[in-house]
Amino acid sequence: MNQPSRKVMRFTAWSAIIGGVLAYANAGLSFAVTGPDADMVLHGASMLALPPDTRELFRWCMVADTLGFYLPFVVIGGYFVHAFQEELGALASMVAMAVALYVMVGLTGAVMQFATLHPLAHLYAGGDDATRNAAAAVWTAVANGTQNGLWWIEGPLVFFWTLIAADVLKKAGWKGSFLLKIVGWAFAVFFLFGFFPDLEALSNYSEMVVVLVLPLWMLLFGGQLLRRARTLPNRFQGAGATNKATLSRRLSTKDQI
């Protein structure tokens, strides 16, 4: 196992913890917008007719989605691949690619919905029937493309890297690896049931499992990483400290000469 510096460990830990909190905030904001009818997001007329304050809540929901479920995994994935490169071997590059693709498709979907909701709502509010129908159709296409396209394809990507990460972390003595396996299998079920419209309810349940369990793992992982950073030997405090110590020794040697 490669030992990252204390600063890197703390940065990764806080990225995971803050990301977990924001991921739960995303779930809360989503419920505040749609209530129990999460499928409302897929219907253009319903979304574009929302009051401005509610639409703004949905936009904040997408911000929390971006900062909770996606961007933290740039840091977490980078830390994991670096720290366990020896254990992963050739799988390290595969895991890095899977995490990167997961982040890319997730961010694309969230940003598209964030950017298009207000402009389409303004067209819907001030246009004639043809304009309103067109605006509603565009939002329906964007939302379905995101929910049933970009976010759907996350399934096999997350299934791949979570099962590998869970096994490696468990062998290294990390707690909560079973949560990652639950997330991976839930994503796989979500992806599989996406092929069958009649199983939409089961697909929604599996998505709910992901939304609840993945942030929990992030919080647990971040907490463990913070504790490990506190007990890290001083020689791993950071590259800056190491370079200063090396420079000091060299200057001392020159003075003695």
Rank of each mutant, 00 (worst) to 15 (best):
residue 127 G to H: 12
residue 102 Y to A: 08
residue 38 A to H: 11
residue 179 L to G: 03
residue 108 T to Q: 15
residue 61 C to E: 12
residue 187 F to T: 01
residue 68 G to V: 06
residue 13 A to M: 12
residue 227 R to M: 09
residue 16 A to I: 02
residue 96 A to R: 11
residue 26 N to F: 10
residue 251 L to V: 10
residue 251 L to Y: 05
residue 215 P to W: 11
residue 202 L to E: 10
residue 187 F to D: 10
residue 175 K to L: 08
residue 127 G to K: 12
residue 48 L to A: 07
residue 106 G to Q: 10
residue 224 Q to M: 08
residue 26 N to D: 05
residue 157 L to A: 06
residue 19 G to S: 00
residue 121 A to S: 07
residue 239 A to K: 06
residue 115 A to P: 00
residue 131 T to K: 14
residue 165 A to N: 01
residue 200 E to V: 10
residue 228 R to C: 04
residue 203 S to N: 07
residue 219 L to W: 09
residue 108 T to E: 13
residue 204 N to E: 09
residue 169 L to S: 11
residue 16 A to M: 11
residue 232 L to H: 08
residue 240 G to E: 10
residue 21 V to Q: 04
residue 18 I to A: 15
residue 71 L to K: 10
residue 220 L to S: 12
residue 49 A to P: 00
residue 11 F to R: 14
residue 243 N to Y: 07
residue 8 V to N: 05
residue 116 T to I: 02
residue 229 A to D: 04
residue 144 N to P: 01
residue 248 S to F: 07
residue 146 T to S: 15
residue 3 Q to P: 00
residue 130 A to H: 13
residue 63 V to K: 06
residue 226 L to A: 06
residue 83 A to N: 01
residue 139 W to R: 09
residue 80 F to W: 04
residue 22 L to H: 05
residue 182 I to K: 03
residue 130 A to I: 07
residue 204 N to Y: 06
residue 90 A to H: 10
residue 239 A to P: 00
residue 94 M to K: 13
residue 19 G to D: 00
residue 88 L to A: 09
residue 115 A to E: 07
residue 9 M to F: 00
residue 64 A to M: 13
residue 16 A to T: 04
residue 184 G to P: 05
residue 29 L to T: 02
residue 124 Y to Q: 05
residue 249 R to H: 14
residue 243 N to K: 13
residue 71 L to Y: 09
residue 239 A to T: 09
residue 149 G to M: 07
residue 216 L to M: 11
residue 84 F to E: 08
residue 235 R to I: 13
residue 179 L to E: 01
residue 167 D to Q: 09
residue 141 A to E: 06
residue 1 M to H: 12
residue 234 N to P: 00
residue 22 L to T: 00
residue 126 G to I: 01
residue 69 F to D: 02
residue 2 N to E: 15
residue 167 D to H: 12
residue 10 R to E: 10
residue 224 Q to G: 08
residue 199 L to C: 08
residue 172 A to L: 01
residue 190 F to Q: 15
